[in-house]
Design a protein around this nucleic acid. Structure first.
Lengths: 156, 156
DNA sequence: GAAGATTGACTCATCAATCTTG
DNA sequence: CAAGATTGATGAGTCAATCTTC
């Protein structure tokens, strides 16, 4: 008795696979599009802005090195740099020189940035519940957390 | 015995909610980023290109009205229009006048478009399995399909 | 006027190239 | 030369405005 599977000659997805994959794509795009639209309309922030502001409020002194900020969000360095540039123009964050490492730079939360995230958070959290969390059973919630840890490693 | 829940004074997410929501965000961005990178490297197509080409090969005559194409992908009209414009420049699709409705336009798959999707599909399907499907148990796959039908309706 | 579609301006993300300091 | 970071070009997506035909 071998553990044998026939070679897959046909590369297409079967119905269950199709449904899961297409479903994931639709789920993902609708959830994010809805939240982005609401957040933008209510607070003038993009989801990217929001994530950056949250990351900064989460640390002592509300300041992080560019690369650490990028790593904490799982972003590329250059994306981070562009984002910080846009947010600096709007005075949500500020750049500061790094004294111990001349190559580095700090990203610092500004008072305006803090005010923006505090104003935006309550409604955004309600929206996340409304659009996503409240539509899942506790079991599904657990399954999702579980799956997230297993699927899609950082690179490759 | 009422079914009572204390009023939520604190708007934040609890740990399980945090984990599910953050997990979903990471899952989503990593899966899509990985697939987009591989598809682009192997075939010179974006995920958006790929979806459009698949939608066209799925219908008789490989032609669709712009709005029907947009609806079948759950896209906005203007996004569709921009996408078709870019793909037309690369000769993956072509625009054609619509005879019965002077306002309308057909989007037609070109031979180059067909060649591109046929060349790209086998590896992309393998990638979808590799990055996503093969990392889910059958039960998780079912759960996901189920959730997708319930979460995030088209608008709002 | 409403429907089908396009356009322009703007924000975002990625890639490759670059610049500076270690 | 590596590491930290920025820049410029390009492809994508959204919104509001527009144009044409019904």
């Amino acid at each position: 008795m071998y553990s044998w599977r026939p070679p897959v000659s046909d590369p297409w997805l079967d119905d269950a696979e199709q449904q899961a994959w297409r479903g994931f794509l639709r789920l993902q795009s609708r959830v994010l599009a809805t939240l982005a639209r609401r957040l933008q309309a209510d607070s003038g922030l993009s989801l990217a802005d929001y994530e950056v502001l949250v990351a900064l409020t989460d640390v002592a002194d509300a300041r992080l090195r560019v690369l650490d900020l990028a790593r904490s969000l799982d972003w590329e360095q250059s994306r981070m740099s562009h984002q910080v540039a846009r947010m600096t123009r709007r005075d949500l964050v500020a750049r500061e020189e790094c004294l111990d490492d001349g190559r580095g730079a700090w990203v610092v939360l500004t008072p305006a940035g803090r005010a923006a995230i505090e104003a935006a958070a309550p409604q955004h959290v309600r929206d996340v519940r409304d659009v996503f969390l409240d539509r899942l059973t506790p079991a599904e919630l657990t399954t999702l957390s579980e799956v997230a840890t297993r699927v899609a490693p950082p690179h490759s």
